[in-house]
Each structure stands twice: as structure tokens, then as C-alpha cells.
Design a protein around this nucleic acid. Structure first.
Lengths: 251, 251
DNA sequence: CGCAGCTAAATTTATATCAACCACCTCTGT
DNA sequence: ACAGAGGTGGTTGATATAAATTTAGCTGCG
């Protein structure tokens, strides 16, 4: 975990974007509009402008820390390019990766309206370009746009459900079930393809599944010899999703 | 777990309260005002009236189900009297108790603004009187009262942090750490006293700590012989909180 | 008395740890 | 260019430890 100690050398891509002066050419438009699931979908033109005006768009290299647990910040993070991991730095150096985030994903911290202390660390897995929006802007929008407030709440309730579900999965399932969960998560939520190349080490995959890397590898091996998956280095191919689903459900 | 199958025989205490016609004598005033931490603190007189007008105040007997996981409901629950448990019915009949709720506690479900399907079960541990508020009223208030929207969001973010923390504690700690957590939770969050009598069985305490009741009992025994606690039936006395804290932190 | 919940010990299973080994890079010096 | 050194991450097996399960006996209470 040497990279946690690395100095952050963030390159500010556009502190204030002057390439794009109106909404249509606004460089970070994609962050907010392309995705139906976006929280920002209900915002008017002016509100969106208010939100994106002067926001920082930053580039991070693999391994760099975007948000550091237990530090104070008032930013909300919105990923524009690349893959990052959201994880909790737990007991005795153990990490638990909570989720992976990529294009259009949005992370509001544990500190939002709540003391501004981050409850998790976010770090770049691949090169990441992301937007940092000051949370005070969100509060202003609440006053103006009721729909936006509801969307924000909906988003957090979904996240609550996700965590609740993860809590049960991680505590009640045996290791094969948890490995199956991780594989299905990667296939269905992150890559949306049975074949994918993961820019994560086995150690990190194990941290997603809450086990040691040795245990993870062993179970992966069992899945391979059962013909459920194929792997070659970081290339994964899911051959029998229903088998994995059944292992996941069974526990 | 026989009580999960029990028929709900809910007695409607006051469907519409006519004992109290103004705010000061309003029977359920206590639900919303006495506690500084209340989400409803920012509401005006009229808004509070709007919220509490016509709400159902229901009485449940021990073991009865207030909200059932995977069913649809549009209610938000506010406890007025008694103790209830919020738990997830997991894999192979295993339950995980997520939190206990008592007077003034507020539970918004996984279904709020999100399909209305409950993600957990709430059942009465002691006799419970609680208020069921229709969630559509909350949306209306969002439009009128910006502060309320922020409070709702803050509440959910806190809950997120709680779950995140619980996820790490439950997956990274050994059993003694988890038992210590449960005892400290009961002392500090629920009873606010080193001495308390728990209306929960060892089975349920184990479900709070994500282990079998046998394991829970054994560790309780170890804590007793180490002089950290005393127990007699359901009476608990915490003698050495700092020892428990150290066990909790150490893992 | 009989039941439900609690306790205790035994056995079995799940999981982590430790240690060795391998495969593949990357660097470096010639 | 290329051989060798050293590093990193991946895999495997042996062993130790943690925890669940099983079983049985206990206790207090209606």
C-alpha cells in the first residue's frame, strides 16, 4: 500500500473552463447530462450553469488519492473519465473496497452537511479525470429546486440500500459466495460485458470480497476448474453466470 | 423465529387524534419536538400540523411485525414508546439486526422515493406505540421548507456512515470485538447507563453481532471472567468500559 | 413437570497465515 | 542487444487459528 503515502500531484485541467462558454459546448457537460440516472437531470439551464461554473476539473494518476479518509473537505466528486475505488481504511491496515466508480458516477461523502469529515478514501485505479463541486452549491440548489432535493435524497437512499445489502452479503456468505458477488458486480455493474480486463490486483479484488488474496485466488481457481470462468492474468471471462448466481444466492 | 409468521393484529390507538386539537396538547407532539436531534425541528407550526394531521398512531405487541421486508409501503415510522429492532432477513433464515430503535427514533425505508419496497423488517421487542406518516407528505414539505430537505438528507448521510462503519466492524473484527461493539452500543446508544436490562434473547444479541448465539455466550463468559462485565439473566452491568473499547478497537 | 432459553464442551468446518515457488517485468551494466 | 539481478504480483500447499455446528446438560419459570 505504498501509494497511500504518495504525494498528491494533482494537475488542474480546467479550473475555470474557458473552452466552453455556453451549455452545449461546456466541456464537462457529459458529467451531468448524458446519463438518465444522473441526479442533475432535473436542473434548469441556469442551475446547471451555477453548479458547473468555476468547478475544478482535476486529473489524477493511477494510485493517487482523490479523497482521503478522516480529512476535511467540502467537495462532492463526479467522475468524468477512468476508474477509481472507494474504500474504507479499516483495522490493522485492512482495507475494504466499498464500490468502484467510473464515468458519471457521483460520490457524496460522509461529511456532506455533517461536519465535512470524509468517511472513506477514494483513489484512482486508472488515470482519472473528475470534477470537484463545492457542496455549498448543492444547498443553494435545494432551496430553488425541489426536484433536485428529492433526487439527492433518492440517491442516498439507494446507497443506503446498497450498503445494507453489502453488509448482509459480506457477513452471511461464505467465501465462494462473496467471490461470485464480486465477479457478478464487475460483469454487470462495471464492465457490462462477460469479458473484461480488470485494472485491479488480486489483493484489491480480495479487498472487495473481504478476504485475503490467497483465499481469493484459491476460489478463483475452483471456479476455473469447474468451468464457470476463464482467466488469463487480468483478463476475465464469465462462462456460466447462472452457476455464479446460484453460488451467490446459496451463500 | 416463530414470531415472524405471526399475524399482525394492530390496534389503532388514534387514527385521527381528537383529544388534542392544537399543537400544545397534540398527543403526539412528543414525537416531533422534544428531541433536539429531531429532523422535524425546522418545521413551522403549520407544516408540523400538516405532517401530524391524520397520521396513524398504532400499538404493537412484542414480536409483532411493524414493517415487513420486501413488502410495499409508503410509510415512514416514528417511534413514540417502546423498543423495536430493525433487521434484514438474510440467507438461510439468518437475520442481521441493523439497529434498535426507541422513543423519537425515525426510520425511513429503503423504499422511500425508490419503489416503496421495504429493504428490512421492523418488529416490536417491547410493546411499541408508533406513528406512521405517509411519505407523500414529506415530498410536499420539501417544496416548502428547504431546511427540512437538508435535515432529511443529513439524516440519511448519517445513516450511510453508520452502515459503512458497521460494514467494516462486522467484517474486519474478530468475535470479541463485535461483542464489545454490541455491548457498547447498548450502553451508550440505547440505555445510556452502565446497567441495563435487555428485552432481547441471546439469539437476538448474537444477530446484532453477526455470530451464533453459542459464540456470543462464550465470549460473554470470557468478558465476565475477565471482570469486564457482570450479567444475571437479562441484566447487564458494564464494569470496565475502557477494556471493552480496547477490545473493540484492537479488533 | 415441561418448556424455553441459556451454558458448556466436542467436533467439524471455514478461513487466515506462513512459506515457498513461479512467471513475468524492468532495470542495469556491459 | 542481452544476460543477469531484483522486484512485483500471482499461485500453491501446509499449518494454525477462528468460528460454526452439534450435542447435551442446565436453569428458572409458568
Amino acid at each position: 500500500m505504498a501509494y497511500f503515502e504518495e504525494v498528491i500531484v494533482a494537475e488542474i485541467v480546467n479550473h475555470k473552463c474557458d473552452v466552453c462558454s455556453d451549455r452545449n459546448t461546456r466541456c464537462c457537460k457529459g458529467c451531468f447530462e448524458e446519463d438518465d440516472k444522473s441526479i442533475f437531470i432535473g436542473l434548469t439551464e441556469e442551475e446547471l450553469y451555477f453548479l458547473t461554473d468555476g468547478k475544478q476539473q482535476i486529473k489524477y494518476n493511477p494510485g493517487e488519492t482523490i479523497v482521503k479518509q478522516n480529512t476535511s473537505s467540502t467537495f462532492v466528486v463526479c467522475i468524468r473519465e477512468g476508474l477509481a475505488k472507494v474504500y474504507v481504511e479499516g483495522i490493522k491496515g485492512k482495507n475494504s473496497i466499498v464500490r468502484l466508480i467510473s464515468k458519471h458516477d457521483f460520490v457524496t461523502g460522509g461529511g456532506l452537511f455533517n461536519g465535512n469529515i470524509q468517511k472513506f478514501t477514494i483513489s484512482a485505479v486508472t488515470p482519472v479525470v473528475c470534477c470537484l463541486i463545492d457542496s455549498s452549491k448543492l444547498v443553494k440548489l435545494f432551496a430553488e429546486n425541489n426536484q433536485f432535493a428529492v433526487e439527492m435524497l433518492r440517491f442516498h437512499i439507494k446507497q443506503n440500500n446498497y450498503l445494507l445489502n453489502k453488509l448482509v452479503n459480506q457477513t452471511q456468505k461464505y467465501m465462494p459466495g462473496r467471490v461470485a458477488d464480486t465477479l457478478l458486480y464487475l460483469k454487470n455493474e462495471i464492465f457490462e460485458d462477460s469479458q473484461f480486463t480488470i485494472p485491479l490486483t488480486r489483493q484489491e479484488l480480495a479487498e472487495m470480497s473481504n478476504m485475503t488474496k490467497e483465499s481469493f485466488v484459491r476460489i478463483l481457481q475452483e471456479f476455473k476448474s469447474s468451468g464457470f470462468i476463464k482467466t488469463k492474468g487480468n483478463e476475465f471471462l464469465i462462462l456460466n453466470e447462472s452457476a455464479l448466481l446460484s453460488i451467490s444466492k446459496n451463500g
